[in-house]
Design a protein around this nucleic acid. Structure first.
Length: 426
RNA sequence: GGAGAGGUGGCCGAGUGGCUUAAGGCGGCGGUUUGCUAAACCGUUGUACGGUCAAAAGCUGUACCCAGGGUUCGAAUCCCUGCCUCUCCGCCA
């Protein structure tokens, strides 16, 4: 959420930035609502001031056992007026807040201006896509052939966009989670969190999924509980309504969770394989920082995520999302895209974002520079480190051999009892 | 699921309709005393949204005692609804 007075004082800038996102009208009648709200506030507050004053007079008259009935009679219509004006002011305030709740973050000045995904800018590449002397197969062929991935039974027990991992396939998923968590906790200084996979709507509002993106989520019927679409939600909300001490920042957490997404509106997209599932696992990196370091922290968070791909020796590139492709809450985002040889393309495997104070304002995440100082909103960042299902399939595809077996990347072997090659499971 | 007890400032905790602009304490900040530290003593204390101002400071107004309604000239206080926490019982990995 943007700051009300920031929007008021920088209206043209905000409008321009929204146009760059491709959202010309998102501010609606902000100006008129803001003016109206301030007018009503003034009217209701001056009447309240009068009521408070006269109430004191009534009290002192009564204390002296004098008659206050005339003043009380005078106050009755004033109270009704206050109630009416207050209702108008509240309605106006609510409409203004509704506008603010659906206005996305202002893109950082370094974000490339663009009209769609084609305007995203490649920042760097790492690794050379392997040259195959045979036609590389997609994971949805290799996985079932190896007996480590089963779509048919997943469809039976749940439905489309689910998968069953079997035997060494299941173990590979678990190994990847441990490998990622160990790396980030031991070498990158993140402390591990295992949060609830179910959250309330206040948490989803805090990170920006609600109220606008309800249809992307699974809700538990008859409750205020939702399945998390990413660990970003519970972990960012850990310190909601708290004041952190500046010297403790940055706070860096990593968390492994399952993630659940309804994928409404993506029918027909990535329908084969495990690229786009209703349930997947992810290790998430989350940072809480002071405002002046958040862009440095975005660079290092992105590099922390890249390290996973480098250790697994998977070729990838880093892409800076343009204004049109930027997520709702984000001020700047780098996507990591891993090379998929069967499709011959780079595919998103991580998204690293700086939200500046956008989520902090929604979730009331504050810090204090000194014990006597004022509280300020901190900055939040997060990134996948990495999406485990997509890492799994990237390994299967990039390390496949002509005979259909898969070499295990050396960095992962300690997590699989030294296993060097995935062969057909029986 | 059943029974009960609660929710007050950064924290603890008083407060049964108007001398409460929320007592008192802790903590924080400033000061006095002190060779230093500690102690003692004195003062001070939150958030949000408005107004004033070129702006800041300052001044000023309103709101905030879990949330939302209601009663009343006036609500932390009385009434209703909801949420949350704790204790005990039941069920349960």
């Amino acid at each position: 959420m943007l700051d009300l007075s920031f929007v008021r004082d920088n209206l043209e800038l905000v409008k321009q930035k929204m146009r760059e996102r491709g959202l010309a009208d998102v501010l609606g009648d902000f100006e008129a609502l803001d003016r109206e709200r301030r007018k009503l506030l003034g009217e209701v507050e001056s009447r309240r001031a009068r009521r408070n004053k006269v109430s004191d007079e009534i009290a002192s008259l009564k204390k002296r056992k004098q008659d206050a009935s005339q003043l009380i009679a005078e106050m009755k219509p004033l109270s009704e007026e206050i109630q009416q004006l207050d209702e108008q002011a509240k309605a106006c305030d609510e409409r203004l807040r509704e506008v603010l709740r659906i206005v996305p973050n202002v893109p950082h000045s370094s974000v490339p201006v663009g009209r769609g995904a084609e305007d995203n800018q490649e920042v760097r590449r790492w690794g050379e896509p392997r040259q195959f002397d045979f036609e590389p197969r997609a994971h949805w062929d290799l996985g079932p052939a190896l007996g480590i991935l089963d779509f048919e039974r997943a469809t039976k027990i749940a439905g489309a966009r689910f998968a069953v991992y079997a035997q060494v396939g299941a173990r590979l998923e678990r190994a990847l989670a441990n490998f990622m968590l160990d790396l980030h906790t031991r070498e990158h200084g993140y402390t591990e969190i295992l949060p609830p996979f179910i959250v309330n709507s206040a948490s989803l509002f805090g990170t920006g999924q609600l109220p606008k993106f309800q249809e992307d989520l699974f809700k538990l019927e008859g409750t205020d509980y939702w399945l998390i679409p990413t660990a970003e939600v519970p972990v960012t909300n850990l310190y909601r309504d708290e004041v952190l001490e500046a010297e403790k920042l940055p706070v860096k957490h990593c968390a492994w969770t399952a993630c659940f997404r309804s994928e409404a509106g993506s029918y027909g997209k990535d329908t084969r394989g495990i690229i786009r599932q209703h349930q997947f696992q992810k290790v998430e990196l989350v940072k809480f920082t002071v405002p002046e370091t958040s862009y440095d922290e975005l660079e290092s968070l992105t590099r922390d995520a890249e390290t996973i791909l480098q250790r697994l020796e998977l070729p990838y590139r880093v892409v800076a999302l343009c204004t049109a492709d930027l997520g709702f809450s984000s001020a700047k985002t780098y996507d990591l895209e891993v090379w998929l040889p069967a499709a011959r393309e780079y595919k998103e495997i991580s998204s690293c974002s700086n939200f500046e104070a956008f989520q902090a304002r929604r979730a009331n995440l504050r810090f204090r520079r000194s014990k006597a100082g004022k509280t300020e909103f901190l900055h939040t960042l997060n990134g996948s480190g990495l999406a485990i299902g997509r890492t799994w399939l990237a390994i299967i595809e990039n390390y496949q051999q002509a005979d259909g077996t898969v070499i295990v990347p050396p960095a992962l072997r300690p997590y699989l009892d030294g296993l060097e090659r995935i062969t057909r499971q029986t």
